[in-house]
Every structure is written in C-alpha cells, then in structure tokens.
Amino acid sequence: MPETVLTTVPAGWAALAGIVLCTLAFFAAALDSALSARAEGAGRGGWLAPAWSTARLLRQRRRTVVAADTLLLRVGAAGMLVGSFLMVAVIPLGRWTLADLDVGVVWFNTVDVMVWALVWLAGWGANSVHGLVGGYRFLAHGLAYELPLMFALVAPAIAAGSLRVGDAAGAQDRLWFVVWMPVAFVIFLVGVTGFSVWGPFAAALGADVAGGVLAELSGVDRLVMQAGRYAFLAAGAAFSVPLFLGGGAGPFLPEWAWVAVKTVAVLAVLVWLRRKLPVFRPDRFLEIGWVVLLPAAVAQDLVVSLVVVWKG
C-alpha cells in the first residue's frame, strides 16, 4: 500500500483554501462570460463580466415571494457556497492538505449528495411553480448521475486500496488512473457537471422554465447560489486531479503548481462544454444514466479490481 506523504496544515490555512476556491470559481465564471461574449458577438462583457454581475447583484434588492419558505430558500441558496467549501477541505494541494480523512472519497460523495437537498430546497422554498418544477427536475437528474458517479469514485479507491484522497494520488506514480480507467474519469466528470447544475445538467435552471430554481432569486440570494455553482464546478474539477490525474505529479513545476494547472485545465473543459451541449432532458437522461452509465461504471470497477488482484 502506498505511503501517505501528505502534511496536514494548521486549520488557519483554510483562509487560503477559501481564497483559492473563490479564485477558481471566478475563473470559471470569467471564462464562461468570455466564451459567451465571443460566440454571441457581444460588444462588451468578457473576462470581467462576473465582477460586474457581482456588483449588480450586490446593489440589487432581495425579494421574497408571498408565503414563501424563506428559510429553506436561503439554506438552499447559501448552502451551495458552503457545500463547495466543505468539498475542497479534503483535496490536497500538492503535499499539503487541510483534512487528511481516511474516508476522503466518501466525504466528497457525502457533500455532493447534499446538493440534492440544496437545489430542491431552493426550488421548493420559493413558492413558485417554475422553481418547484426546477427543483424536482434536479432530483430526476440526480437519480441518473449519482449512482454512476459513486461507482466511478470507487474505481480509484480500489486501485489505491484506500479511501484516503492522498493515497489515491500517491498510487499513480507510475501510471495515471485516467489512462487505465477512462470510463470512470468521464463518468466522474459527468457527475461533477451534474452536482454543479452546470451545462447539460442545468435543466433545473432551464430557459424553458424561466430560470427554474433561480427564477425568483435576486440580489445576494442569487449571488451566493450562482457563486456556489461555480465553486462546486471548481471543487469537482480540483478533485479529479488527485483521483485520476496523478495529483501533483509532473516535471519542472512544484507539486502545488501542477495541481493548479491540472485543475484549471479540467475546469476550462467543463466550462467550454456548456455552450456546446444541449441540456439533457431529465426524462431522457434517466434511461441513459441507468442503462448506459451505470453498467459502464460497474464494468470499469470490475476491470480495475481484476487488474489490482492480478498484479497482487
């Protein structure tokens, strides 16, 4: 079994981790605006547009719908931001980590399942039909992507013989997991897109339901929910690095820099995909999730465990 070489840093470094996460989230939003502006031929609104949107939402008043369950609504909206912070706690930045849990992979899974509740709460709490439909749409998507995601998470854990995130990264010194478990990697990214309510999985926020879960949010409520989505996307991309992309491994640069570079690369691909893919309709994707992704993920786990046993 590979040795853990991670150093757990004092809790005070959480401030830095938070800043890094927010920077990554801003990068994702900025890249998305830049791509949008280019595709649409907008006269204005490139890389800095997220800053302007933030200013706009900070200036905008909050609103509540008549008889809305504001507590649930706000828990849902702000919870997205909180959840993404919890997720990055177990992601090692090169050699350092904030929390070296021996069940780090399960922790990631736990937090991503929380999103089910958060998105649904935000949709339900608004007391608006659009939000309600959006919230339930997300659950339908969740039913389709969550199980394949769980099985995809198990694949690196089998190969590393550990649920510790650092062990998974350390077990890839010869060959990155992405090379011999590509199916798990792709399904993992599908899951990340799913729990970030991003791109193909943004049916809960779709144009066809006038924004769905976001339809009634304004001001800072909207800001935290949107920021939370980008932060989750960034956290998911960052988690793929120790799990599939060899962690900090790489020539010349220090380990933390490689983690950053790989995270940004994965994040950029996820952001770019949004404009290219249609929104997966929940009713159609359910079948894909169960009939294609789930067996594929199980088969991947089988292959991985056979290889592991064979190499003994």
Binding site: G18, V82, S84, F85, L86, A89, L98, A99, V220, L223
Partner: peptide, 29 residues
Amino acid sequence: MYSGIVAMALMAVFAVVFLYALHRLTAVA
C-alpha cells in the same frame, strides 16, 4: 483530523455572512 473541515465550514459561513452584510450596505434597500 477534522479541524480542517471545521475551519473550512467556518470560512464558508464567514463568506456567506460577509456577502449578506456587504449587501445590506450596498443594496438600494
């Protein structure tokens, strides 16, 4: 072992509270 997670949770809550407090100052109401 869990202090890192607790710290991150506190950071997150701080970020949310900070944004809401800032919004109180900057919003039109």
